[in-house]
Amino acid sequence: MSKTDKTRPWWVRMADAPMATCVPVHDHRFGLCTLPGDITADSASLSRRTSGCHWRATDSYLFGGGCSGGGREWHLFRREERRRSRHRARRDLRAYHGED
């Protein structure tokens, strides 16, 4: 199997480039800092957690396509938005020409 980014787990890609793909989030409400030095699947998060120190993916990583699915989801959202815009324009043109 080739060793490309798409075959590697998301947390491994985050661990390879910390501070570019993930940032430390500190939450000391329940005691001292519990942020681990190493980024693992348990210490990393793709979303916002509510308690405890952890590593969180940056927005550019999530929406820029670095995360598997993140870029595709944004692409699908934009695609749906463009489709709605085209349908709206067609409806407006038909109404303008009196075809409705």
Rank of each mutant, 00 (worst) to 15 (best):
G65Y: 09
L76Y: 10
L62P: 05
K3M: 15
T40F: 07
S47V: 04
A89K: 09
Y61M: 00
C67Y: 07
R79C: 06
L93V: 03
P9T: 04
F77Q: 15
A95F: 12
M14N: 01
F63N: 07
F63Y: 14
H97S: 12
H75M: 13
R8F: 03
V23M: 08
D92F: 04
R72L: 11
L93N: 09
D38W: 02
V25C: 10
S2C: 13
A57L: 02
H97A: 12
M19S: 14
S47F: 14
G66Q: 04
R82T: 02
A89W: 07
S2H: 13
T40D: 00
F77I: 11
K6G: 01
G71P: 02
M19N: 14
A44C: 05
G37I: 05
M19F: 13
R29F: 11
H75W: 13
T50R: 12
T21H: 10
Y96R: 15
G64I: 05
G98N: 10
P18C: 07
A89D: 00
D92W: 14
W55E: 06
V12I: 12
V25P: 00
T34N: 10
R48T: 14
R91W: 08
A15N: 08
T34K: 08
G70M: 00
R13P: 02
W74G: 06
S43N: 04
H87K: 13
T7Y: 11
W74R: 14
L93W: 09
G66C: 03
M14Q: 09
R82P: 07
R91A: 09
E73Q: 14
H97Q: 14
E81F: 05
R83S: 00
P24Y: 00
